[in-house]
Design a protein around this nucleic acid. Structure first.
Lengths: 241, 241
DNA sequence: AAGTTCCGTTGATAATTGTTAAGCAGGAGG
DNA sequence: CCTCCTGCTTAACAATTATCAACGGAACTT
């Protein structure tokens, strides 16, 4: 009889699994982990035996760029509640990047061997879990596009709209979002210096589309923000709720 | 009895599958497709029933950025022989980007229902095919990092080193590679204007690391190129040959 | 309380890259 | 043969963003 914990809720992107599939899966989680803001959850290159679902908070996936004396970070992804943060470690074995806690976070862990067991019994479940990892890949493509083709204002707006769209699905729609990203974090995600992020946030505020202060994003004109971002949510493959 | 074609060779990244696994898989391909340079192989948003393995040539995955009057392209990925170019359409159903032929190309197509059939019988095969799609995701992360953090010279060098590393695995090591990418293609992949790509290619030539002309990359000082790129191949999850 | 560190803010300056324009070469098609 | 297109090349100029520096405040440590 395996150890068990209270199963995580079926929120956010987990709704790509049917209620029954999630019921079966969620009961195999055997550990709950808590990390405080800034902690490294797992390091690149280390073999992993569990995968994690984010229940609360924000998690970043980080690559240390080059080997400058001063470590320079870059965020390749941000995960919101209801995301598997490292399901791709299941097929691959190791990750090519670090996982860090942006805020205080709660995660639930499922052992890979139990994932194997339940997937062996349900090919459709396998396909859907596979899909979840591919939605991450689609988001990577969009980030690559964003940082490769957009100017700074649009980049930040696009990041904001993506995050609030995903958070709407995970924790419900609002006009104000506690992201707890520092301006440096935003720069690390958008390929900008934190100084320039600061200027862009002022521009967004003066344009009346949103304000960002003390880690809280207040969306004052959502349509304007979407417009600046040129945002089209199809790449997120949102589950119909 | 299904239609069959001569099965594709086990080259490049396909070596992540065992010879037996590839034997079984490769026999399920039922169609060979040929496209000429510039053709669109599949459009975003269209449901796909087959997935494709690239046998010869170079294929790009493209997103039309914004809706400017003048369509602006961005390349989110390049595929080399031995790559599944759209295996992620199998779990997802549709793609969020277009697939285009960069050069004249030959592809082999396998129906998704046959993929389902052989995966149902071999969970390890499923895991390895899944892995192939996740290596694509790892490459997306690296492109995102590249275009988000590197200066133009390093970006182009990094793209070149990545491509020759992957081509070495697929078609064998050489000092000269026929890529047939236009300078505009390189710009579309690196988030640079074609004018600036031209300047960078001159810099690389004058630095003595490589020359690029008429679509052919001649690597004159591989170590220098790797050095400029700050290249570390771990993210490619190369199969040990 | 004093010191330290990190984050946010602003200004000045420099570096990088985009844009525009023009010329040229070569291939496709009349 | 001529024309038209596309791609490559270079120069001049403009826009964007990074870097450096200085300062204030908040949180934390000693």
């Amino acid at each position: 009889m395996p150890d068990r914990i209270a199963p995580p809720d079926r929120i956010g992107m987990l709704r790509h699994l049917s209620p029954q599939q999630w019921k079966i899966t969620s009961q195999e989680f055997d550990e709950r982990r808590v990390h405080t803001a800034g902690e490294v959850i797992s390091d690149r290159g280390v073999p992993l035996s569990h995968s994690l679902v984010l229940e609360r908070g924000l998690v970043g996936r980080r690559i240390l760029s080059g080997r400058q004396r001063v470590a320079k970070h870059y965020l390749v992804a941000l995960q919101v509640p209801g995301d598997f943060v490292d399901l791709h470690a299941y097929p691959l074995g190791v990750l090519d990047h670090d996982i860090v806690a942006i805020t205080d976070v709660t995660l639930a862990a499922i052992p890979h061997h139990r994932l194997s067991a339940i997937m062996a019994a349900d090919q459709d479940l396998t396909r859907r879990l596979w899909s979840l990892t591919l939605v991450d890949a689609a988001i990577h493509r969009q980030w690559s596009l964003r940082n490769g083709t957009m100017r700074a204002l649009q980049r930040v707006a696009h990041l904001f709209v993506e995050l609030i769209t995903r958070l709407d699905l995970a924790v419900g729609r609002a006009e104000s979002y506690r992201l707890d990203l520092s301006q440096r974090h935003i720069g690390d995600a958008c390929g900008l210096s934190s100084v320039h992020v600061n200027r862009i946030l002022r521009d967004l505020r003066e344009a009346g589309s949103c304000t960002y202060a003390k880690g809280v994003l207040v969306v004052t004109d959502r349509a304007a923000l979407v417009q600046i971002a040129g945002f089209d949510d199809r790449y997120l493959y949102l589950p119909r709720v």
